[in-house]
């Protein structure tokens, strides 16, 4: 824009507006289609954002969101000073990081194995079966875990007893609860997470393998020098995105698995928010903690996305 001609740009501006209006009108059917979805996001995703202001108020159900008195950062401070703050943060991070660290290697291994095997039937069978747990509700997985791990009748404890060892109360022991959480997630999701890596492997040019074979490279060397480099991009992307959502340690899973004896190792931010908000009726406090988590999550995922764009050339969005 040129400040020397203050009156001149007007027609041009008006013209572009007119152009825009015409374009909008031409697409009116499309906007109409968009309307229900847009309303959905406004009502179920943006209205809650407005309600989130109760984090800064002392919410009283009878007074409503707008009528409750302001209290500033009181709820945030209460959470930061609370006895359970550090424990929650540690549990959330430990479980999350362990899930990433122990979840990705088996998925890569599985993808490579599926890619390398020459037995078609085995490959098909493993793919079909290993995706299955992904589609089971955590409630069902909890049932399976009970069957495996229950101290009275569980399969693993029967095995331990047969070996003359003491049974272990896996789901109620502070020593074993986190491993159970992490490993059950690995059991449930490995097959599914392998898909992405498998896709990356399949997109590698087969000529590379052929050339390597002619050069006398062993299968293992081919994996090491062709397959693994071929999935590095996907790996970086997956890791960064998981780091972006590192405060989500798996609410639904822990919600069904945990119990009083393992609160100290199993309680994560989300379960705490649920208990404070829905069980103890501390709506404002719970909202404040949820908001705290949301903001950190936003920052992390934006940073992760930046990094992904820089190192891999593609991000989540």
């Amino acid at each position: 824009m040129n400040p020397a001609y203050p009156s001149k740009p007007a027609p041009q501006w008006r013209q572009s507006l007119k152009h825009l209006a015409r374009s909008v009108w031409r697409h009116r059917v499309l906007y109409l289609m968009l309307l229900p979805g847009l309303l959905y996001f406004l009502i179920f995703r943006y209205w809650p954002l407005w309600n989130a202001q109760i984090a800064f108020r002392d919410f009283q159900p009878t007074l409503g969101v707008w009528g409750s008195p302001w209290v500033g950062l009181q709820h945030f401070l209460e959470f930061f000073n609370s006895y359970y703050f550090s424990q929650l943060l540690v549990n959330t991070l430990v479980i999350s990081v362990a899930k990433i660290a122990l979840g990705i290697p088996p998925a890569i291994l599985l993808a490579i194995a599926l890619h390398e095997t020459s037995r078609r039937f085995l490959s098909r069978a493993v793919q079909t079966m290993s995706y299955l747990p992904h589609f089971l509700s955590w409630v069902i997985v909890y049932g399976i875990l009970l069957a495996m791990l229950s101290p009275s009748e569980g399969l693993i404890n029967s095995g331990l007893r047969a070996l003359g060892l003491e049974p272990v109360p896996f789901l109620t022991s502070t020593a074993t609860f986190q491993p159970v959480v992490v490993l059950s997630e690995v059991w449930k999701e490995t097959g599914w997470s392998a898909i992405l890596f498998l896709a990356a492997l399949l997109s590698i040019n087969p000529a590379l393998y052929e050339a390597a074979a002619i050069d006398g490279a062993s299968r293992w060397q081919q994996v090491r020098h062709i397959s693994l480099p071929g999935i590095v991009d996907v790996l970086v992307l997956v890791v960064l995105l998981k780091i972006g959502s590192i405060l989500d340690a798996g609410f639904h899973q822990i919600f069904v698995l945990y119990s009083l004896p393992v609160y100290s190792v199993g309680d994560i931010i989300d379960t705490w928010v649920y208990r404070q908000g829905i069980q103890n009726f501390q709506f404002s406090l719970a909202t404040a903690v949820g908001l705290f988590k949301g903001v950190i999550g936003l920052v992390l995922i934006v940073v992760a996305n930046r990094l992904a764009r820089r190192f891999v050339g593609t991000g989540l969005y």
Binding site: S82, Y83, T172, S173, T174, A175, L260, P261, Q276, N280
Partner: peptide
């Protein structure tokens, strides 16, 4: 913070009782 109090006592006692 009644819930915190109850949780603190129960949780610790369970851990003591369970031998954790």
């Amino acid at each position: 913070n009644q819930a915190d109090i109850e949780r603190y006592v129960s949780e610790n006692l369970v851990q003591f009782a369970l031998g954790q």
